[in-house]
Structures are given as C-alpha cells and as structure tokens.
Design a protein around this nucleic acid. Sequence first.
DNA 1: GTCTATACTGCGATAGAC
DNA 2: GTCTATCGCAGTATAGAC
Lengths: 197, 197
Amino acid sequence: MSSASLMSNRRFQVRETVLDSALYLFAQKGFFNTSIPDIVAHSGVSTGSIYHHFSDKEEIARALYDRHVQQMDVLINAIEAQYPQSEMRCRKIILALFELTEKEPMVMAYMLHARHQEFMPDVAPVCSSRPFQRMREVVAKGMRDGEIRRMDSMVAAVSVFGGAMKFIQFYLDGVLERSLSDYFDELWCNAWASVRA
Amino acid sequence: MSSASLMSNRRFQVRETVLDSALYLFAQKGFFNTSIPDIVAHSGVSTGSIYHHFSDKEEIARALYDRHVQQMDVLINAIEAQYPQSEMRCRKIILALFELTEKEPMVMAYMLHARHQEFMPDVAPVCSSRPFQRMREVVAKGMRDGEIRRMDSMVAAVSVFGGAMKFIQFYLDGVLERSLSDYFDELWCNAWASVRA
DNA sequence: GTCTATACTGCGATAGAC
DNA sequence: GTCTATCGCAGTATAGAC
C-alpha cells in the first residue's frame, strides 16, 4: 500500500469517526442541541482536528447527509438490479427501509426526522433527494407498464409509500407496540390494493 | 366591561401578538434560528414585556403548540358533531386539514414539520397529541361499525390518513405542482379503497 | 495532522427606571 | 406592565505549540 493511500485512509477514518458521533448525537438530541464540545467528547477527536477535517459544524451535517443519501441510493440500486417488476421493487424498497430503520434507527431519524433546511440552508427537502425521486420513478414506471392504474403520479407514489413512511415515523417516535416488520403484510396489502391496475 | 376583564383582555392581546410573531418566525426559520430579539423586532413587543408574559423562550413554543393543538381539536369537534359516519368524518377531516394547510401554512408547518421534542423536552410526539389520537379513534370506530375491514387499527389509520399527511408535507416543502385540493379526489379514492369493508 | 487554550460573538435572561 | 440597558455564559471557531 502506498503512503499516499495510507494517509488518505487515515484521513477517511477520522472523518468517519466524527460522522458516526455526529449521527449519534444529531439523531438523539438534534443538530442545535449538539455542540462541538459534545462531538469532541463522544468521538475522542479534538476540536482542532475536527476543524482540520470539516470547515464548520454545518459541513459535518452536510457530509453526514450525503453519506446516507448515498447509502439509501445503493440500497435501491441493489433492488432495481434484482427485480424488474415495479410491484416487487416497491415491496422490497419498503422492506429494506423497514430493516434499515430497525437496524440503524439513527440513520433514519437523521434522514427522515431532522429538519435539514434549518441548519443546511441551501439543501433541498429530503423528499427531493435522489432515493425518494427514484422511489417515485419506480411507481411511474409501474404505471407506464400497466401494473398500476392510471392516475396522478404523485398520488400513486404517496398511496404506495406514504403509509410505510408514516409507520417509520411512528416507529422512530416510539408509539408502535410491535416491530415494524410485523405490520408489513397488512400494510402492503392495503397500499398495493389502492393502486394496482 | 369590568376593569378585571379589560386587563385580562389586554394581557391576552399581548400574548397573542407575541405568539403570532413566534408562529411566523418558528415556521419560517425554526425555533433555534429565531432569537428573542427577532421576536421583539417582529412583534414590536419589548424583551421585558415578553419575559413578563412568558417565563422563557420554551414557554412561548409550548403556548403556541397548545394553541394550535386546540385549534385542530375544535376542527374535529365540528366534524364529529355534523357527521355520524366514519367514512364522512375521515373525508372531512382530511379536507379540513388541506384547507388549513393552504390558508394557514405556518400553522401546519409548526405543528407537523417542527421537531417539537428538540426544544420542548417533555412534550409527547405530535402524533400522540389529542387531534391525532382522535383521528385514529374515528378509524377504529369505523372498524367496529363495519365500515372498515378488520385489520390492525394502526395500519387502518395510516392507510386512511397517511397519504394525505404526506401530501401536506409535500405542499409545505413546495414540491407540489398544483394546489392540495386538486389532489383530494384521487387521493381519497385510493385511501378509502384500501380499507373499506 | 493533532492537540490545548482561548478569543469572540450573540443570545437568553435579568435589573431596575418609569 | 412596559421599557432600555446590560450581565453572564455557552458555544463556534481560531491560534499556535508540538
């Protein structure tokens, strides 16, 4: 391994450590209730080092956001590669999001719950991010292919995914009695029934 | 009018002025991006006076929250009084929320979008507040009465209201091409189809 | 590149006159 | 009850040694 790639690996490591702590703290207490000293204490990385890797607190939030937009995008890539039909794609996307929510609730809390625009002024709302655009595109394709009834494409997308997203929110808010996956079958049955051709 | 009630009216007036400004600013920029000086500038009420009426910034947020929980509750009262059937109640509740969103977007932005728990540590998530509890109760009643198929009551509630709530979020995020009410018929058709007996 | 120590700023909250 | 002036502090970001 070259010394250049070793250095950039170390660089990468520190960034990831900081982002992991930021994820934990932002998801737990929110961006504004998390101070740089909090991140220093939780990550073990010093103030100076943090500011060496990130220009300011906002950039930490932005890097974190980008990291997990990409994570979700990769998830959707895998599903689209494996399943050609829109129905199965939608099903699997919801299942994948449910799984992600239960395995890494902090990721979903930060991606879905946080009001990103309050601390990243120039970022578009989450629902305009690539993964969510692609979820709508899967539904639009299903409509073109005749799997889904003709209707407004936004209405279709919301009918398919809206309930699941709401359930994720309930899960993160701790108002659910059982695990997310326990609700999936009934929920999916309703969602698909409302749009199928 | 007695001097006591005159005084309490004045007292009421100042509180409302402050709450109106807080609503505007919290909805626009968020709680943490709104300073007391911002509220002073926007409301024309002085710092000292604000702190005479509210113990701290958090109490402003709480009073605002209570005011609009009650506003929504009154809305639901009116609907329940007029319509006995669950189907019509659900329909009318969604219509009322759409109307409120278009007429007073700041109210809905503050009530639905804000992460209340980040600045009011002891408050329950919005979805546990009275209006949203009652929406779920309307659906549960519909199930008991045989208007809605037997299923998990949370799944039913989410299937009926989830899509509409998602649309409100889209509206507030400015990603909708048309007005909310334009989507209502198609949306309601899907939602009700997914749960009706 | 990483650390400690610290400068600077802006805000929440109070004091105290009227 | 309302105002202006101000205190104290928390927190971001930087300076500068190593």
